[in-house]
Design a protein around this nucleic acid. Structure first.
Lengths: 336, 336
DNA sequence: GATTTATGGTATCAATGAAGGATATTGCGA
DNA sequence: TCGCAATATCCTTCATTGATACCATAAATC
């Protein structure tokens, strides 16, 4: 590991001069600077991030915090897609990412402590339970924070347009002639509430009311729960002609159950998912879904967080809405 | 941020003493130690990882390097599962993880340089192209390295038992009475070669030969390619009765194509996948597959890498084989 | 008096930043 | 045109960041 000291010796100058040359300070001669830069390059120098961090309090590390009900972590398709684009965008700006855990060398700690221990410059939080005490502590701290799919005052958030998405989906289903539309939604969260209210308001904008029994709950990504609720809907006196699911995975669970009952999905019965998960494209029939723009969510998140870190004064605290798009599959039949 | 200096002042001792107390040195009085630990705790002290790293050359950070043909990154199901369990196991041992990129503050660098810049204690490499020059540089370096699914001399590797897995799968298919078995395999790699040779040797152990045209290639996770190859197989004079796919995703692509042709999968025609991906469980029929033990792979990887870091002398350089299990779905029909 | 035990002092890790000093350059009046 | 001060340029020295390691030293024990 070649350090500034080595370069200083090689160039016959002091370490401070080397530091200035490499960090584009003004009070240094052009010739010396060029020479130092050239020699540093030849010697294969690159900075020591720990030393730099110690002195400057900047690590160029972004913390990522994610936790869902099922504790699926990185295997959570939707989050993985966001994280991937977040990572790519962050790296482009010179930031690496690391996960925020709840322990420091085997000792239990809070997320905030972990962040301070590692000296992350900022944190991205994507979480189901934003009211967890440790999450709250982080939200209330002076650390730059950005949240996904949940809004806090005084915090920047990137939110998928659940209201618009659900409206588009509902209107699509209505346009196909459906009136008896059931909605199996996820467990309570701000996302669920947004979709649910958008669902009802879109229906009533079209003067449509649905029976109470058409609204049911199944946890996100819980295939069995989705299948059970599908059963329940089918056994109603007046079963729905179309079922909306919490997500594409659940939708697939529903499809299987429907098919097992001898129904042809996309003909006898219609279904739709949410997310735009890869599985939506490879099922048969393809699932009609709202593709959440995870690329944009992750990218926006990274850029905005970095902006906040580098320009804390001028960065506007706002809620950024990312629109999704309706992906038409063949799972919703046209009826009359 | 409370530092050792603050604790030293509060306790009326020197920083050196505080350091000793908190790091369980022997040459310190029990009383002073307990008092220092108590006060440090009360003051909410935790170490500064940058400062510690600077002095000790240990960051308790593990680097993760993953790159696949399609550049899917974290959205790669199989890798995401491994990474998740790797992460959990690493955290349990007090290590955080970070991704190894190929740039340092916007400047292009090699993976090795990035690792040195961040001072990671070790690196986990899961990769398609192990012969990339930058990967090679890393492999040849003095950094603790562990590789997944690829063996290098002098390097520890954790390898999924592709030979055993493929044998089990082939034997299962044979036991169901199939003789005309086709294999659409992934692009060339050590994994592909292991599975392929195991496939053939299992067949010949049972005295079975298959036409050359039964062996076909489709990139991993490439649904369209899998569908195309499925078509090609069906249009043969003697089509196979069972088709093995590179992975479960591809298998689903195949299933859709077969169904589109009016074939009943699991009855008229049989298929099997590989991986034990979540989608294998939620398709209809459920896909018979070899579930790779990603939990064990990730966990073993983390533990072994940490062992190598902490006990470089006594750690045995070995190839650790992780067995998978046959998950029987309903996609392989019994024929006579 | 030798040895053990407990504690402090100081250098060090690699980098940054503030302050200062040695030249060179410029300004401006005589 | 010269002389002297003022200024600019370029670089160095020294302190600092938080923690650890080595050596020194004082007190206690045998």
């Amino acid at each position: 590991m070649v350090s500034m000291k080595d370069i200083a010796r090689e160039c016959g100058v002091s370490v401070a001069t080397v530091s200035k040359a490499l960090n584009h300070y003004s009070d240094i001669g052009k010739e010396t600077r060029d020479r130092i830069i050239r020699i540093a390059d030849e010697m294969g120098y690159f900075p020591n991030s720990s030393a730099r961090a110690l002195k400057t309090k900047r690590t160029y590390h972004l913390g990522v915090l994610f936790m869902d009900e099922a504790n699926s972590g990185l295997t959570h398709h939707f989050f993985a897609r966001i994280l991937e684009s977040f990572k790519v965008a962050a790296e482009k700006e010179g930031y690496d990412i690391t996960f925020v855990g709840s322990s420091i060398s085997k000792r239990k700690t809070s997320y905030l402590e972990h962040c301070r221990y590692r000296g992350v410059d900022g944190v991205m939080i994507a979480n189901i339970d934003f009211y967890d005490a440790h999450i709250q502590e982080l939200i209330m701290s002076d650390l730059p924070v950005i949240t996904i799919d949940h809004v806090f005052d005084n915090r920047i958030s990137v939110v998928s347009d659940n209201v618009g998405g659900m409206r588009a989906l509902t209107e699509y289903v209505l346009s196909k002639g459906h009136r008896r539309i059931a909605y199996i939604h996820g467990l309570d969260s701000s996302v669920t509430r947004a979709r649910l209210s958008s669902f009802y308001s879109t229906l009533s904008a079209h003067g449509i009311r649905i029976p109470e029994a058409y609204e049911r709950t199944a946890a996100y990504l819980d295939v069995n729960a989705a299948a059970e609720q599908t059963d329940a809907l089918l056994s109603l006196e007046q079963p729905p002609t179309c079922i909306l699911y919490p997500d594409d995975i659940c939708c697939l669970g529903g499809i299987n159950r429907l098919r097992a009952k001898g129904l042809r999905v996309g003909e006898d019965i219609s279904v739709a998912g949410y997310d735009g998960d890869m599985v939506a494209h490879i099922t048969d029939p393809q699932i009609t879904t709202i593709a959440q723009d995870t690329t944009s969510i992750g990218q926006t998140c990274a850029r905005k967080l970095i902006d906040l870190i580098e320009n804390p004064k001028s960065t506007i605290i706002e809620q950024i809405l990312i629109r999704g798009t309706l992906e038409e599959g063949a799972s919703v039949a046209a009826i009359d």
